[in-house]
């Protein structure tokens, strides 16, 4: 059974969108990044082939085929219950896909061999309320490694939380906690960001911040999949969109 709503992104579409993204961001040439050679660089950062997931034999989404290249940000759009969060969990390797396969940088991703190239920001941020913002970030870098040229305090500063280093996370507001979680993304050396509703709980400045972080990440040669139920859209530019509808 292949539902008619299956989203398909052919390679040509992806290349066009990548070009559009780069043109918009003014990235005609990015030294040292995979995005510099679109014509003879067919290895996508992430590729899904016939990806589908079913919970208790109830299809949640799919089958999906798409490719995500370095330097790209793709917005996953769908109604509540369309399976956006589940898709991100499957792509991160937390959930095993029911059918199809995920290829990360040319290597198949399996549950047993999770890749350190993926950073997931979910509804649950994974921050400890009893620890300070800085302690939480130090733990994240200990666990996942640290990008060169950045420190936990620098990352906190760049998400607008300077001066909150030693405040326990439980005393921060929901939006500030989200910012700490965003600082974690800045620190860990993951090429692929999977962001589940990153705009939730954030004020206007926070929304701009997420957009800026995504721009910077794409410019560094990273890629991101962002879910949104449509309440917030990107304020700048038009990223490629991946519509997701319930397979049921």
């Amino acid at each position: 059974m292949r539902p008619a709503c299956a989203s398909r992104f052919l390679h040509r579409d992806a290349a066009d969108a990548r070009k559009a993204w780069r043109d918009r961001a003014g990235l005609a040439s990015i030294p040292g990044s995979m995005a510099t050679s679109p014509d003879h660089d067919p290895i996508p950062l992430l590729e899904a082939r016939g990806l589908a997931f079913a919970r208790n034999d109830e299809p949640v989404f799919g089958p999906l085929d798409f490719r995500l290249f370095a330097g790209e940000v793709v917005l996953i759009e769908g109604d509540n219950g369309a399976g956006k969060t589940t898709l991100l969990k499957v792509l991160s390797g937390l959930l095993e896909p029911g059918a199809g396969e995920i290829v990360l940088n040319g290597e198949p991703l399996t549950l047993a061999r999770l890749s350190h190239q993926v950073a997931l920001l979910g509804h649950l941020t994974g921050l400890k309320g009893d620890l300070t913002a800085l302690e939480n970030l130090r733990f994240a870098t200990g666990l996942g490694g640290m990008r060169p040229g950045i420190t936990p305090s620098l990352a906190l500063g760049s998400v607008g939380l300077e001066g909150y280093e030693d405040v326990p996370v439980r005393q921060l507001s929901a939006g500030q906690r989200k910012r700490v979680a965003l600082a974690r993304l800045l620190l860990v050396p993951a090429a692929l960001w999977l962001l589940d509703e990153p705009y939730a709980n954030l004020d206007r400045g926070g929304i701009d911040l997420v957009n800026r972080l995504l721009d910077d990440h794409a410019r560094r040669g990273g890629a991101a999949l962002v879910t949104s139920h449509g309440a917030y859209a990107f304020t700048s530019g038009t990223p490629r969109r991946l519509p997701l509808r319930s397979a049921a």
Binding site: H116, D130, E135, F139, T141, G142, L143, G145, P148
Partner: peptide, 25 residues
């Protein structure tokens, strides 16, 4: 971009859990 070492990760887990239980001693 390189991931941290296994030793650093284990140490981070131990240090975090010890800190947490010290906060709730």
């Amino acid at each position: 971009m390189k991931p941290g070492t296994l030793g650093a990760a284990c140490l981070a887990v131990i240090r975090r859990d010890l800190t947490l239980s010290w906060r709730r001693r």
